[in-house]
Design a protein around this nucleic acid. Structure first.
Lengths: 204, 204, 204, 204
DNA sequence: CGTTAACCGAGACGGTACGTCTCGTCTTCAG
DNA sequence: CTGAAGACGAGACGTACCGTCTCGGTTAACG
């Protein structure tokens, strides 16, 4: 299997420089924000010539993208939702954790930078989704399918939409701020969505 | 009625310049995109000194913000959802219209520019929501309250969350692209959310 | 016939503003130097609208010119060289005093500003000479003519040139710095020029 | 012999840009005058980024200085006064030539720009003198020393002052305009200064 | 086991845009 | 109905970065 990364590899490429660039980028975005990130600053902090950056990445966004992906998924951890058999409890637990994550300033800053870049260059949008969000959505879907098999969710339910219904309100509040991101809000989401997915003749 | 604008007023201020700046900004964002919008280009097209822009707006984002708000809500049209008595049909109709709007390239470009700016400067976030989104959400809420009064929705339902559940998935798909923005998707949202809000003992 | 001065008069003109402008100008040149003098700063310090300056003076140089002339010759003092009968002693005394004046930092700054402006706008050159230097030269000439009448200077001597020979080397050193401006230098000038003006058969 | 220039050298420096900047500067000063010279105009005409100017020169005056020095002394011609044995004739010939030079409009404009700048920034004053005037003064001094050796000038005469006495009146008239710059004026200077330098017992 | 070509750091280059400053004109409003 | 206050169009200032382009100096693969 060929290594599927944004940046092409080469035997001549200096791994030391690549690491220094990604680390410098990550640090600078955290400190100054994405809007004030400059190639020159990255090169200076990384102790690298500007050309070395331009040689391997097509744009500032691409560098940041790699830097963040690298930072987030270096462990390559498998993501799967817990399955206690109680779909409601499981969903609430995971959504509460998600809310906590969004409330973490560092995570929030990271996400803000990524989304800002993605909105400007819609080509990155697909990549962001495929590499960083799709695995998460798939995990939700897997959990919902298990619940479906267990008869807790109607056979014909539209799980695709269901997953997005669970996650998008959190992203929405985080991004536009119509209300606070609390555990209660996470619970509310589940309390509305889950009944809408129940099988027609509940266990009575 | 005093004119309610973001930027402070002054009897000395030239209305002619203000209009020219907003129009030039709107046109330039549509033509070149927000990323390539420059203050110098706005000033040149508006036939205005740069200082006149810097005097009245604190940032490029603020100018664009005003330009868009001005373009979108110049009519001051009242927004209210239709009420045929059939909450499901009404919601689907409105969400389908919303989907169509997001699929319009011009509207999409406008929104992209706004959101991109808003993500970078979180101070604008609240303003964007209050001035441009809150009225829409309120209209949804009003319609849901009517349905609640009509007994189509449970008395204790969390309408705040319900509104966000209806709208956020569309924004989510538009922004991150996990799937196509279709009428069917709009219907799916209603088909899941509405049952979750129904009163416990429906009309039987 | 209208009064031919730099600044036209008018019965409507506010003397209070005129004074405030000249004083502010003089002070600002002394504090920041002529190069950093701006109309806006003058107006601000004088508590005057910019238009009031532009109404009465054609250029920044003209304002400064008036300010300096006003400061220097407000007393309208008559200038005449001493006449002790000893032309050599008299000239040396006056040139030594002139050297001292040039060595005074405040006087030097003033002169520097004036000359700088005059070099740029040659129209002011004649005015500078006529109003500020010509009276001085005339005083020298008067003293030399007295010496001529006393037989200490040849009858046919070119006194016009003689006066300039006495004064120009001091201006030259001050402006271009080929050497220090000392009393010894002043004496040297007289020691060379005066013998060149002596009558052919001195009192023997 | 190392190249003696104001601006530091570097192997990385583009000689092509340096030349283009100096040429553009010289041309623009001649066309529009020093007061209307702008860095932007120099950069535009030279086809050069502004930063390339700011990188190598500290101020507008310094650029102009180099441009003029470069234009005037590119040949590196040795300057020496003629020596026909007749000191009076030699001095008059050279001073008449100097007067002609000052009367040349192009030379005059050049000199006006230089002096104007020098007066404003006294740091440039010393440099102007050392690089552009001192060699001339030295040539005069050499000629006077020759005359001294030939017995035409007193052994103890102050030649330093004598040289300045010969040159400064011309600069003075040119700059302040108390009278016309003619050959007769040049002769008058020599006619007064030279007798003042004669040995006490002439050829008898 | 030397040649040589790519990659490296450094940073100068032609440019664009920034946000500020000042110019000289034009407009408003208080005394 | 003058004059201070200051907004306006204009445009230069000096700075920050852009993305491209040499420079020498390693450094690793090939011949």
């Amino acid at each position: 299997m060929p290594p599927e990364t944004t940046t092409p590899n080469s035997s001549r490429r200096s791994e030391r420089s690549r690491r220094a660039i990604l680390d410098a980028t990550y640090g600078l975005v955290m400190e100054k924000g994405y809007a004030k990130l400059t190639i020159e600053a990255i090169a200076a902090r990384a102790g690298v010539g500007k050309q070395t950056i331009y040689r391997w990445w097509p744009s500032k966004g691409a560098v940041m993208f790699d830097a963040f992906f690298d930072a987030a998924y270096s462990g390559g951890e498998d993501i799967a939702l817990p399955d206690t058999g109680d779909i409601e409890a499981d969903l609430k637990a995971v959504l509460r954790a998600t809310v906590d994550e969004y409330n973490d300033p560092e995570y929030s800053a990271r996400l803000r930078a990524l989304n800002s870049e993605v909105l400007a260059d819609s080509q990155l949008s697909a990549e962001l989704f495929d590499r960083m969000l799709a695995p998460g959505l798939a995990a939700y879907r897997t959990r919902l399918e298990a619940a479906q098999q267990a008869g807790q969710i109607a056979a014909g339910a539209d799980l695709e939409t269901a997953v997005e219904l669970l996650l998008s309100p959190i992203q929405y509040r985080w991004q536009l701020g119509p209300g606070p991101l609390t555990h209660a809000f996470a619970d509310s989401i589940v309390d509305i969505v889950l009944p809408g997915l129940r099988p027609p003749h509940p266990e009575g």
